[in-house]
Amino acid sequence: MMVARALLLSMLIILACFPLWSNAAWQIVVHRNSTLQILTVTEVKFLFTEGQVQGQAPDLVDLIEEPMRAHFYESVLHMTLSRWRANWAKRVFTGNHRLPKQMPLEEVLSYIEGNPGSVAYLPSTLVLPPTLKVIYCGSGELPAGMPLPCAPTAAGRSQQKSP
């Protein structure tokens, strides 16, 4: 019964998100306590190709659903899944890096809530719990003038208070 309920919940989340991610808008999400600030699209690319940004090397979370993954890489990073995989292969096979963790969409939110050092990309209209914040929202494919279905909730660099 529990398994059936979990499966049903997973299917509902994916079905609910399908029209959203297919509209090509994504949000980069971190824990509320993360010190990562709002990212530019260049920083998003650097983060998901080099594994680091803003002086930090956060724990990257990758979606296990290949169509969603491919869509994120193509629309935001402008690279195919194969090119992204090749980019990470060179890191993995030197023994210095691990591939980003892959997990199903329905597990990502709870993982980030439990791991403040992690960062993930999610469909932009997925409603987030208050423990998480958005540090990037957008896509290279949305027509000019079309409003984004999400907005960064983290502080921008210019808004940071001096220590």
Binding site: R85, A86, N87, A89, K90, F93, T94
Partner: peptide
């Protein structure tokens, strides 16, 4: 590419 030269895929 020397540290992963065997990985032709990359």
């Amino acid at each position: 590419y020397s540290d992963h030269r065997h990985v032709n895929y990359a």
